[in-house]
């Protein structure tokens, strides 16, 4: 049976890179005795895949992994087993059984929502979430130079920003994510700062939490 899990990544886990989180899950499976299925061949590995990599430094409430099990197991039991062995800062928040023919999480992702703010003391003068939001609404487009494989290219972000709102000092955004179009939240922040004519955020000056990942139907990958 195929299952999908949603998990959160907080605290010190924000420093652990995507590949290492995958390895941590493999070890969690072994410690918890999860009946995960393995590939055939001489170097078998767990049938385990992740939705969309999260950059080091970001926290998340909405990470997803798909897993194939070689025997049936109750989702609540699995959730309990994972959290019994998970390292601090990593928690499985939901387990659901996937229909047989469903697309994997990685292929399903179309957008992601984030909560973004400036780290204390790093907010550029003249920046406020309200100003940013107003300027964004008034401007017809949001262009930015983006580094691509073919060099610098001007891209239009407007269409890829599906939602942008302010909650106090936080900006909440949902942006295109996945193989077709991928917008990083820091790129949106760069563009908004350009729009406000304030300096762009320097390295590591943003606090970003991914809130959820969404599929084609604009619903979270596990819809509860």
């Amino acid at each position: 049976m195929k299952i999908r899990l949603r998990f959160s990544k907080h605290g010190l886990m924000k420093y652990i890179g995507h590949l290492d989180v995958m390895r941590a899950f493999q070890k969690m499976n072994a410690r918890a005795g999860i009946p995960v299925a393995y590939t055939e061949g001489f170097s078998p590995h767990q049938k385990l895949s992740f939705a969309h990599p999260l950059s080091v430094g970001l926290e998340s409430d909405g990470e997803y992994a798909d897993m194939e099990l070689k025997e049936e197991a109750a989702p609540e039991k699995l959730l309990e087993s994972f959290n019994r062995v998970s390292p601090e800062g990593l928690a499985v928040t939901k387990v659901s059984v996937l229909p047989k023919d469903s697309k994997n999480a990685m292929a399903s992702v179309r957008s992601a929502s984030y909560r973004v703010s400036f780290r204390e003391g790093y907010s550029p003068k003249g920046f406020s979430t309200v100003n940013a939001l107003n300027s964004f609404k008034n401007a017809g487009s949001l262009k930015i130079m983006k580094e691509t494989k073919k060099g610098l290219k001007e891209v239009e972000l407007r269409e890829g920003i599906r939602e942008l709102r302010a909650e106090g000092d936080f900006l909440i955004m949902r942006v295109d994510t996945g193989s077709e179009n991928n917008i990083r939240p820091s790129l949106v922040m760069d563009a908004l700062c350009d729009l406000l004519s304030v300096p762009r955020p320097g390295p590591h000056s943003l606090l970003i939490t991914r809130l959820d990942l969404y599929g084609e139907d604009d619903r979270p990958l596990i819809d509860d």
Binding site: G11, V56, H204
Partner: peptide, 13 residues
């Protein structure tokens, strides 16, 4: 979460 000797932005660099 425990207090770290380095600031976040230092660690991330």
């Amino acid at each position: 979460m425990k207090r770290l000797a380095l600031k976040e932005e230092q660690l991330l660099s």
